[in-house]
Amino acid sequence: MGTVITYTEHELVALLKDRDSKAFGYLYDHYSGALNNIILQIVNDVELANDVLQEVFINIWRKIESYDQTKGRLFTWMLNIARNASIDTLRSKNYQNSQKNRSLPDNVDVMVKAQTSELNIDNIGLRKILEKLKEEYRVLIELAYFKGYTHEEIAEIETIPLGTVKTRIRNALLQLREHLK
């Protein structure tokens, strides 16, 4: 193997803000798999995840100027772009599916095709850890993190007080953190 270029996060960010395509290539090589994992957990479709990943990296390239290092690490910033893009995609896909199903109730082909590219996402990433949580926590993380509902929406869906939603989510996250170690 030749010399492997490594950047400190600071150098990497500076180069990215300079629109250095080599640094962007490095960013892709190091983080595309990790971000793809996050996207997959939400959209649950390999092909769709590839599309979202493509959109996410283009957004990273476009918005790098707005990244503020004082507010968090670069990966955290990218993770949130990936998560938001995935949730947006999932919502527009669900919307389209509901439209499609209305006009084509017997379209078995579409359903079969959709199933074939689906994964067993229970075994990847954070979901693996989620399995270790209590049921009541698991549901809330599912709704908040993977489905992107606000605490108010979750309170409505689960018919529990908003304060309880907040507390339970925070407790769930603390447990999650313990399992990450």
């Binding site: 190091h30 983080y31 595309s32 798999g33 990790a34 971000l35 793809n36 994992n37 996050i38 997959l40 995840a49 590839n50 990943l53 690490r73 990966f75 955290t76 993770l79 990847i124 990433g125 954070l126 693996k128 953190r177 990450l180 170690k181």
Partner: peptide, 13 residues
């Protein structure tokens, strides 16, 4: 820890 976890669970596109 999130970053390391995500990288160790990477799924290549």
């Amino acid at each position: 820890s999130i970053e390391e976890f995500a990288i160790s669970n990477a799924v290549n596109p």
